[in-house]
C-alpha cells in the first residue's frame, strides 16, 4: 500500500511551517471520510500529504461568546450531541448529531470534517445554514469568516485554497422574546432507519410560543448540489400561527427551490417526493400546542 506523506503539527504556528511544497493537502481529523477515499483510490497518495490536526487542541470544544456560540473544528458529533449549550441554542444541530453515523463514527467524525468534506448530504450542514453560521478559515497570513454556503463550490468541492484550514464554526445566538422558546430539529431519509447517509434532509430552527412563530429558518440537504436555505418560509410564518394552509404555502416554496439530482444513492424524483413530508414532520414535531 502506498501511503501519503504524513505530518502531525502540534500547534497552528507549527502547522504553517511544516507544509510540504507541491502536495495536495488533506487535513486528517477523524479520518472517517479520508480513509474511505484513500482505500477507494480517490486520493492519489503519492502526490498528497495528510496533515494530522488531532493534536491541535485549541480547535476542540464548544464555547459561549457574547454574540455567538463557537464550535472548534475538531469537535466530534458525540460531543455536540451532549452539549447543553447547543441544546439551548441549536437543538436542530444536536438532533443532527444524534443521527449522524453510528456511535463509533460519531466518536470520531468532526464538524470541521463534515464541512471540509463538502457533501450536500453532510448532516451538520442544513442546521449550520439555517443558523447563518460562519466557518472560520485560516491560512498562514490570517483568518477570515465565510458563510457556510460560501465554503461549497459544489458537491465534494470547497472554495478553500490548498492548505487553508477551517478552525471553527461560529453560530450567532438568537434573541428570544419573553415567553417564547428556541426549538429545532433535523430529519433525514436514508436507506434504513438510522445511521445512514441522507437521501434528503431538512433542518428547522425556530423561536415559538406554542403554534405562534416569532422566527423560523429552514434549510434542505441532499436535494441540490449545495445546501439550500428556504428563505421565504420565514416570510410566510414569522409573526403568524402555524396552520395547515400556511404549511402548504411553505411546502410550495420548498418544491420551487429544491433541485435534486439522480445519483447512486437515490433518484431526483424520490427526493422531490419526500422532501415536503419530511419538512412537515419536522415542523409538526417542534411547533405544537
Amino acid at each position: 500500500m502506498i501511503y501519503p506523506e504524513y505530518i502531525q503539527p502540534v500547534s497552528l504556528t507549527d502547522l504553517w511551517g511544516k507544509f510540504p511544497q507541491d502536495k495536495k493537502i488533506y487535513f486528517l481529523a477523524g479520518g472517517t471520510d479520508l480513509f474511505n477515499y484513500l482505500r477507494d483510490g480517490l486520493i492519489d497518495a503519492s502526490s498528497s500529504c495528510f496533515v494530522d490536526i488531532s493534536l491541535l487542541k485549541q480547535l476542540d470544544g464548544i464555547t459561549e461568546e457574547s454574540e455567538n456560540i463557537r464550535i472548534g473544528a475538531l469537535t466530534t458529533f458525540s460531543t455536540i450531541s451532549e452539549s447543553g449549550l447547543l441544546k439551548k441554542y441549536c437543538p436542530d444541530l444536536v438532533a443532527a448529531a444524534k443521527v449522524l453515523g453510528t456511535p463509533q463514527i460519531a466518536n470520531r467524525a468532526t464538524i470541521g470534517g463534515n464541512i471540509g468534506n463538502a457533501s450536500p448530504a453532510g448532516d451538520a450542514l442544513p442546521s449550520l445554514a439555517a443558523h447563518f453560521a460562519k466557518a472560520e478559515v485560516a491560512n498562514s497570513k490570517g483568518s477570515r469568516l465565510l458563510n457556510i454556503s460560501d465554503v461549497f463550490a459544489g458537491p465534494k468541492k470547497t472554495t478553500l485554497a490548498n492548505g487553508e484550514i477551517i478552525t471553527a464554526v461560529v453560530i450567532p445566538k438568537i434573541k428570544v422574546k419573553a415567553g417564547f422558546t428556541v426549538v429545532g430539529t433535523f430529519k433525514k431519509i436514508g436507506g434504513r432507519k438510522s445511521h445512514i447517509i441522507a437521501k434528503a434532509s431538512v433542518a428547522v430552527f425556530a423561536v415559538v410560543k406554542n403554534k405562534s412563530v416569532d422566527y423560523i429558518s429552514v434549510a434542505l440537504g441532499a436535494v441540490g448540489p449545495k445546501i439550500i436555505e428556504v428563505r421565504n418560509i420565514s416570510k410566510i410564518l414569522s409573526g403568524k400561527k402555524v396552520s395547515p394552509e400556511l404549511t402548504e404555502k411553505c411546502k410550495d416554496e420548498i418544491r420551487k427551490i429544491a433541485s435534486p439530482i439522480d445519483d447512486f444513492r437515490s433518484t431526483a424524483e424520490y427526493r422531490q417526493e419526500v422532501i415536503c413530508p419530511l419538512f412537515e414532520q419536522a415542523l409538526n414535531e417542534i411547533v405544537k400546542d
Binding site: 486528517l28 479520518g31 458525540s78 463509533q104 463514527i105
Partner: peptide
C-alpha cells in the same frame, strides 16, 4: 473491528495508528 480507545468505541479499520 471495534476497540475501546481512552474509554470510547471506535472502528479501528478507519483509525490512523498515528493517532
Amino acid at each position: 473491528c471495534t476497540v475501546i480507545i481512552d474509554g470510547k468505541i471506535v472502528n479501528s479499520c478507519i483509525f490512523p495508528v498515528g493517532q
